[in-house]
Write a protein that binds this DNA or RNA. Structure first.
Lengths: 143, 143
DNA sequence: TAAAATTAAATTGCATACAATCTAACTATA
DNA sequence: TATAGTTAGATTGTATGCAATTTAATTTTA
């Protein structure tokens, strides 16, 4: 029954369904986020700003698990859209502070129904959602 | 305590940790997969071929949740590496059959220790791994 | 304090992802 | 059976994502 290659079967992977589910959910976000002219990456960047108002690229990267190679173009796009400003720190010129604009804060109200819409797409029992959340958070803590 | 914007906090998202954990694990794969000259996407494509030997692009896409826009260049790269052949079906010229080569099958032996190495990086209790797997599979089934 | 080391972003190069479009081939139907 | 519709892959364009490198600024250290 069991052969030495079982561990390489797609159905026995734990990472693959993680990868696939993640992509599929982000795909579900697309139509809702398009209504407020954001991509998923832009959306999570704005989430950070909606909470922190002003944060440097490094700290935002730490929260989002993204490096400057990814964040720089995303933040430049959001700046062009008028949702944030980018300004070097006065104390340390290496640091770039990203600050949400009034327009950026207004966007939050337009995003308010996105989480609910996504919740409807996922359809997990609440106990499943809780344990999924806990396990993922535990894993994130290990990185 | 609770405000109307709570649902938009990064810490209250279920998709974000899914997205972040998925990326971080794929990053963990990188050094192990580099030893056998594969990227993660190439690795899961090879996994399908190690099981099925010959499969068309559409069916592989259904298994991997990837479309031809992603798969075509991945399969062309794997063809260049000599791990598979690409040939139009005789019965239906629209269909492209992808078949693993002997060289591609040899690669499976070199990949045998990858799952174990990744398992050590993840460090989940076995009950957590089981419920994570079950929940993700259930979600995948809904797409 | 001058040189070395470190740090934060930006840049470059490569590999995905995916929507939208295109092309060729097959199928259904009037 | 001619035509409309459908299907499978490939292509195009845009947006990530990340490793590696670069640049400028700051910190450490000899």
């Amino acid at each position: 029954m069991a052969d030495k290659y079982d561990s390489l079967k797609l159905d026995n992977q734990i990472c693959f369904p993680l990868y696939a589910v993640s992509k599929e959910i982000i795909r579900k976000y697309k139509p809702f986020l398009e209504e407020i002219d954001l991509t998923y990456t832009q959306y999570i960047a704005m989430m950070v700003l909606w909470e922190d108002r002003c944060i440097c690229v490094k700290d935002m990267g730490a929260k989002l698990f993204l490096d400057s190679g990814t964040l720089t173009p995303v933040l430049k796009t959001l700046e062009k859209k008028g949702y944030l400003t980018r300004r070097r720190s006065d104390e340390d010129e290496r640091v770039l502070n990203v600050e949400v604009t009034e327009e950026g804060m207004k966007l939050r109200d337009r995003a308010l129904d996105v989480p609910g819409k996504i919740g409807q797409c996922i359809a997990l029992e609440s106990d499943e959602a809780v344990s999924l959340y806990k396990i993922l958070r535990k894993m994130l803590g290990q990185f």
